[in-house]
């Protein structure tokens, strides 16, 4: 695990520059899923009870369906 993290850090440090004809912000589309996951964790941490209730309601709907 430590090796994987070290490799990831090295990879991020030596990323090559983007080509001029690529919208540099397009890379953010690639990682939106990961960023949304972080956002979901943040939302859960801020309002855990609310999120648990919403999850319970969603599960109940699935079970009833």
């Amino acid at each position: 695990m430590r090796k994987i993290i070290t490799l990831l850090w090295l990879y991020l440090l030596v990323l090559p520059p983007a080509h001029a004809y690529v919208d540099p912000s397009s890379s953010l589309l690639l990682i939106q899923g990961a960023l949304a996951l972080v956002g979901g964790v943040i939302a859960f941490v801020k309002h855990p009870l609310e999120k648990l209730r919403a999850a319970w309601r969603w599960l109940s709907r699935k079970r009833d369906a």
């Binding site: 939106q32 956002g39 801020k46």
Partner: peptide, 23 residues
Amino acid sequence: AAKESNARADRRTATPYHARLVQ
């Protein structure tokens, strides 16, 4: 940095990311 020029939508889920991205 951007590594590729085409950003494909993640088709594994249809749930929009928007609310979580705002968070």
